[in-house]
């Protein structure tokens, strides 16, 4: 118990340290908050801290006493250095920050494709998130999911969503950027296939449209995209570390899931509207797909 108390103290201190300078930014004017922030750097946790600083700190998204759910990509029984899952450093830092901001509970889960126990373990996320103070939930049984109607859905009229998403106050989406054999790109929108029960239904009923349809009922409050070393071929699982582009070294955050995916598509060498689900989502007004209309902050952190 002692270590837990110590841990909460330190994370509170860390959270405050991040939150304090950022209060100045918001004080300077709400209009000054960028729509999309990308940070190039060497350490993922520091990059996340810096990115959040530009939009008011984690406190701009998480209030005291709120229940937070964090959805990383931890679908694969693949170690962190192979880039198939979100890096545990990003998830752990995010959990720490949420606890520091006074979240009553931080939940982490994914509907894994590989055996969930193995994927949770090998990805390193389960251990890191637990140590940072999160509760890690399974997603392997239909009983964890609840049916939600999608009145504005084109291909999908209803979908079963994990109850952790439905019952939380704040929803933070933390994917890793990857080339994807089926959907061309896996970033923030594609990552939400891990909050639903029946993946097959998406594949059967026009994959790209389904990826967009669910956003008409549930959108993340914050998207954090780990683009430190994206898989650029053989995705989304990747075959070896030779599939990774180690030169990218970025981390993006945005409350606009379309904006951040449009930017991500550029990083994989596509046009901003080169990915079908990004194009459909922008056309439906889910978010802003035109990078020219966004206020983007680009930060370079020197090590």
């Amino acid at each position: 118990m002692k270590t837990r108390r110590d841990f909460i103290k330190t994370t509170l201190a860390a959270g405050a340290a991040v939150a304090l300078p950022s209060l100045d930014v918001t004080a300077a004017g709400a209009n000054g908050v960028p729509d999309l922030i990308t940070v190039r750097g060497e350490q993922r946790a520091a990059m996340l801290d810096r990115a959040l600083q530009s939009c008011g700190g984690i406190g701009a998204f998480v209030k005291k006493g709120q229940k937070v759910v964090i959805k990383p990509n931890m679908s694969w029984d693949v170690p962190p250095e192979l880039g198939a899952n979100t890096h545990p450093d990003v998830v752990a830092r995010l959990v720490q920050l949420c606890r520091g901001a006074g979240a009553s509970e931080v939940l982490v889960f994914d509907h894994a494709i590989d055996s969930w126990e193995r994927a949770y373990k090998t990805s390193g996320i389960e251990a890191a998130a637990r140590e940072a103070g999160a509760r890690v939930l399974p997603g392997n049984d239909a009983s964890y999911y609840r049916e939600v109607a999608i009145p504005r859905g084109v291909a999908l009229k209803s979908v079963k969503i994990h109850s952790a998403i439905l019952d939380s106050d704040v929803f933070i989406n933390v994917p890793v950027l990857k080339q994807h054999g089926g959907a061309a790109m896996s970033a923030c929108m594609k990552n939400l296939m891990g909050i639903i029960w029946d993946r097959g239904a998406y594949h059967r009923n026009n994959l790209h449209q389904c990826i967009v349809d669910i956003l008409t009922v549930k959108k993340p409050d914050l998207n954090v995209l780990d683009a430190f070393s994206p898989i650029t071929r053989n995705g989304p699982r990747g075959r070896s570390d030779s599939d990774l582009d180690q030169s990218v070294r970025q981390l993006l955050i945005s409350a606009d899931i379309v904006a951040i995916d449009a930017a991500a598509s550029r990083m994989l060498g596509h046009a901003a509207d080169g990915i079908e689900h990004v194009r459909i989502a922008a056309a439906l007004g889910i978010g802003q797909g035109d990078l020219g209309k966004l206020k983007i902050e680009r930060v370079k952190l020197t090590a």
Partner: peptide, 12 residues
């Protein structure tokens, strides 16, 4: 329509 569910999972 797009799918690729099979290729997505192929580990080799």
């Amino acid at each position: 329509t797009a799918c690729g569910a099979c290729a997505e999972c192929c580990p080799t």
